[in-house]
Write a protein that binds this DNA or RNA. Structure first.
Lengths: 212, 212, 212, 212
DNA sequence: TCGTAACCGAGACGGTACGTCTGGTCTTTTT
DNA sequence: AAAAAGACCAGACGTACCGTCTCGGTTACGA
């Protein structure tokens, strides 16, 4: 949104708008330094223990240069996290619904089992509950893009005749990811491949019974 | 909420432990005043905007009297919230599994649709992601008791022959509540009775297909 | 003033009055423990860093047992310090004024050169500036008794004809001790025997010139 | 009081040192507001009853802006008090030693007889006994400058032949001010012009007797 | 090619809340 | 009753960060 990125899935940024073209433009080097420092601190301390002052100090950047681009700690961490995370969520195309759903959920589970990734995602979901601005960004730039990818998968399944055209896809996706987030956030039971397979089996059974 | 209960599994409290029996004991009146002030502020402002100083001022209590009992804002809010919330989650006994699951999920949905309850629960889940001590209390005093109640429901279903004895009850409960927390926390889709019915229908279909 | 001390230089205590003779009498052992703990803490940390809570803990005594006897940290420290200090200030009788004054000032200088004694005296004078109740005790039970002793010395000098009967004894004593306290409190110049001799020489010269 | 003064002995300030020249400089307006609030509170309540929070509130300043400049209540009060006080101590030049000493002591006595001035000076001397950092500032910025002024007076007396060149000036000044501080701090006898005259008479007699 | 608007790092600004500490009092149980 | 213990209310302490502003200086546009 700020710089030139002609190709690409477009604006997944939470950042503020670039102003008019007058004056000195925002520096790319500064931005990279901020995001890199953020990524490092996120990995070392987690979101809740990270402070904007620390990011500024580590990036050798003034605090104002951060606030010029992001409105809060949450939106900054979001930007540092989300592009990378989305890239690690592949769009499977195995030719059948079960395989695709399993591919989706397994990739997610494997990503969040990385301690840094899991902790950061948990921290972001927590932050979303206290920062309405971040909540908007979260829905628009994380939940919606994720859903868009998933819809492509489901559309293909409909085309293949493996899913009814009138199926409740919103529900299906909440059944796929809801239990996973539940275990991530409450930590009461393990998140592993067996869990992913069980969840997908349930969804497939419900689909075959026609209750989706 | 906190009184002396000689029998029982004891000390799964979020609060700090009472010291030796010597000296002046902690005052019940002080404790009640703190919890009442906390409940009020939780309703007025939400967890993240509530401060310990405000609680102390409203309860006409020294800050030390709060810190003597609770180690953080999260554990205090947890104590003020959780007993009341659990009491509002009935143990349905309709004679069949579908009705019981529907009763459970509908009660939860209706509770969190109350703006104060929903906001507080969201805030607590968020806080759990940043306060490891609260996370322990959360699992021990909220997730586990909830699961215990649900296990009773599932046991009855097993006795009635409506659920296989070897069913994966952990998965079943995550399928029941996971999508619901997902919608509560991400706010991407509505939480209503229709949603509850759809979720239960999926679980019943999976059960009948024998994939649980 | 509290206990039985028929002989002795009379009430040099800063402590509160004993209550009516009803009920259990104040315990001597408790009192001794408090004063002993106070003396130890005064030596280890100095008056300003000592707290009533620390005294209570070290003496294995409740805070109330201290407040029952003394009204403030200053009056307690005063009591722990002053009897001992006064005992170390002898009443010289050398047969001439110069020798007596020198004896007085030298004893004082030597006492306050002990680090603990000097620090405690400085701390008490400092405390006197902020605690009006202590200031009263200070004047009545320290300044006045000291002056009484000195007056005895000066009276003997008058009897011997070494000092005019109408001499300004208040001024004389301020000339004797004022410079000494000045050096103690401001620390700008050393406090030693040479200083004591110089001060006494000045007073003797003034006396001989008849300006006292 | 604080401005940039390239020549001069430099940095004998009680305040903390200015950091590197980078970043936003400390604001003079903020500093003035703090000192003014301090002066007002010193007059209204006295040093020991004044709090940093009150100063910050009255000056409409964050507490950090005070701590950025001064390390303690004492050093702040010192800065607010001492320049003004020193300015009120004139450098007399009557042409003879007696008149100059009388001028010095009378000016001091008259200053400390102002209730606010006397109370603040007493409070500062008391605080000096508990704050080693303030003690350093006190000697460097108050005792030493006072002594420097007095040395000028004594040097003139030596040039005039009214004081021996080898006179013990340190002793002389302690004889002049010691009794005065003694009465100020212990409050046992009045501080008035008659007292000042008596003290000076003693010093002059000793000088004439050659014991200085 | 120059003026100027907006950037840059650094760090002070006014604030808020933190969690700790101490003061002096009050309430238990124990002696 | 007085004892020890320790909780009570109150509020200042000094620190950490917040998000904004100011400083001296730089950079790149557009007049």
């Amino acid at each position: 949104m700020v710089e030139n990125d002609p190709p690409g899935p477009a604006g997944t940024e939470a950042r503020r708008e670039a102003p008019s073209g007058r004056g000195r433009p925002l520096s790319d080097a500064t931005e990279r330094a901020i995001l890199q420092a953020t990524t490092g601190l996120l990995a070392e301390r987690g979101l809740s223990a990270m402070t904007i002052e620390e990011v500024a100090a580590r990036a050798h950047v003034g605090k104002a240069s951060i606030y010029r681009r992001w409105s809060s700690k949450g939106t900054l961490a979001f930007d540092a996290f989300v592009t990378d995370f989305l890239e690690r969520q592949p769009l499977p195309d195995t030719g059948n619904l079960r395989g695709d759903l399993l591919g989706l959920l397994r990739a997610w589970v494997r990503a969040v089992r990385q301690p840094v990734t899991g902790r950061t995602l948990r921290g972001l979901v927590g932050e979303v509950q206290r920062d309405p601005e971040l909540a908007d960004a979260w829905r628009e730039r994380f939940v919606t893009p994720m859903r868009a990818r998933h819809d492509a998968v489901l559309r293909r399944a409909i085309e293949r005749g493996q899913l009814a055209p009138e199926a409740n896809t919103g529900l299906l996706l909440d059944l796929l990811y809801g239990p996973a987030y539940h275990r991530l956030l409450h930590g009461h039971l393990p998140l592993d491949d067996a869990f992913a397979e069980d969840v997908v089996a349930v969804i497939m059974a419900a689909n075959e019974a026609g209750v989706l």
